[in-house]
Amino acid sequence: MSIPLVVNGRSYSLEVDPQTPLLTALREHLDLTGSKYGCGEGLCGACTVLVEGKAQRSCVTPVSSVRGKKITTIEGLAHGDDLHPVQQAFLDEGAMQCAFCTSGMIMSAVSLLNRNREPSEKQIVDAMDGNVCRCGTHTRVIAAIQRAGRQMSESKETRR
């Protein structure tokens, strides 16, 4: 069965089982390996992508459920060499160690900031609690999200 996918502004048609997880489609069929497998249960957030601007766990998303929808992965977040403010903020705050969680963290953060540019710490913790970081960079991630939010408010970064 052919499934139409729109990923990072490009259109694809995939010949896969409709139940194939979006994560597998991205990684195995489109070679977009920035989204990571961490748990396969939607509980670690490493696979997070944006579907129509909202964070979604791609490992538990059947590819058929997002046909034709606008999907953004970590690879599609920057404009050429210009990083998204959240990407830049993660660099500025040193909000990573092994960074395996980072792409999922960034996508969840973008989703949060798309809704709320000035989230409180409590709102950040609530929004990010489904993203696991085993190295323990949580406090920096919170700082990075606050920094990016301020940046986005100033520059009126548009939704992606």
């Binding site: 390996t33 970590i74 690879e75 830049q88 660099l91 040193g94």
Partner: peptide, 23 residues
């Protein structure tokens, strides 16, 4: 000094290929 992660950009852009990303 607090030099930032030398290849940090590769990690925030998804460019870095971890062992599980190799093909």
């Amino acid at each position: 000094t607090s030099v930032p992660k030398v290849n940090g950009r590769d990690f925030v852009t998804g460019k870095h290929r971890y062992p599980s990303d190799q093909t």
